[in-house]
């Protein structure tokens, strides 16, 4: 299985480096995003410190973690579905599915590169933050942070499979991605802490995976929080992963079967 996953990784690596300019633009985007929020932070840092007390008190590290780790959500929600769609468009989906590859291996292989790429982007956000904008993580619990990252990844991979099932079946108009991206940006705490939201929005926010992923990541990386402190968030992510993975695999298999029945596997 490892060799198969490695083959998917190589396939996507070759495809990515064949678009060199797009790769450079991705790197530039990380720099400009970080710079934009650095200056936003300069504008009102003093005024927001009360809301950010539990996250170290400064806006720039807070928002940098938000935008950096939201790339995992983007990768999870878009990588499976975009890969499926581009495989349908290129006509490669049928060629791959005519081989003995299993569905879980195909799904894992198809998204592996995007998650590695997203991880590279997250690292680059921090490198830019450290090197150019004075970011420090002197109060970080890296072990708890690493576990939070792992659970964040598994959560968004599971959601990605559900999104991929929608794309396989309906080709366009993926409600899973739309709802989660929109809800996460507004209520998931990417740009501001959910604590400032009205109560009814806070209740919704508590059911959004991004909220728990970012709370766990920020508290462990900015406030030296240990497992005990972030346990509720880790448990939410773990529980969500345990439920969403089988749901995602089942949904994809169901969508695949329906596409095989109506002959729309290669339609886009």
């Amino acid at each position: 299985m490892l060799k198969t996953l490695q083959a998917f990784l190589l396939r996507d690596f070759y495809q990515t480096i064949s678009y060199r300019f797009a790769f450079l633009l991705d790197i530039a985007s990380v720099f400009f995003n970080a710079a934009t929020f650095y200056f936003v932070a300069q504008l009102f840092d003093a005024g927001v410190s009360g809301h950010l007390a539990s996250y170290g008190g400064q806006y720039f590290p807070f928002v940098l973690i938000g935008i950096a780790f939201s790339t995992f959500q983007t990768a999870g929600l878009t990588s499976f579905s975009q890969n499926i769609r581009s495989e349908q468009y290129m006509g490669t989906l049928e060629s791959v599915l005519a081989t003995p590859v299993t569905i879980p291996v195909y799904l894992a292989g198809s998204s592996l590169w995007d998650f590695l790429y997203a991880t590279g982007e997250v690292v680059f956000y921090f490198v830019v933050g450290f090197a150019l904008f004075g970011l420090t993580l002197g109060n970080a619990n890296f072990f708890a942070g690493a576990v939070s990252v792992l659970l964040t990844l598994t959560t968004f991979m599971g959601l990605g499979m559900v999104a991929a099932a929608f794309i396989l079946r309906f080709k366009r108009g993926n409600p899973v991605t739309w709802v989660l991206v929109t809800a996460s940006e507004l209520m998931g705490g990417v740009y501001f802490p959910p604590d400032i939201l009205p109560d009814w929005m806070k209740s919704i926010s508590n059911w959004i995976p991004m909220t728990h992923a970012l709370k766990a990541l920020r508290q462990s990386l900015l406030s030296n929080a240990g497992f005990g402190d972030i346990q509720p968030h880790l448990l939410f992510l773990l529980g969500f992963s345990v439920v969403i993975w089988p749901v995602g695999i089942f949904a994809f298999k169901f969508a695949l079967k329906r596409s095989q029945i109506d002959g729309s596997l290669s339609h886009y």
């Binding site: 198969t4 083959a7 396939r11 070759y14 006509g91 490669t92 060629s95 081989t99 290669s266």
Partner: peptide
């Protein structure tokens, strides 16, 4: 089964070389 589709691109990844495509598909077997 050895499958060959009628599609003009024959189900290949256009931005990979023929050899890279063949190596990729051979992994499944």
């Amino acid at each position: 089964i050895g499958w060959m589709p009628a599609d003009e691109k024959s189900g290949f990844y256009g931005r990979l070389t023929g050899m890279q495509n063949l190596n990729f598909f051979s992994t499944f077997y």
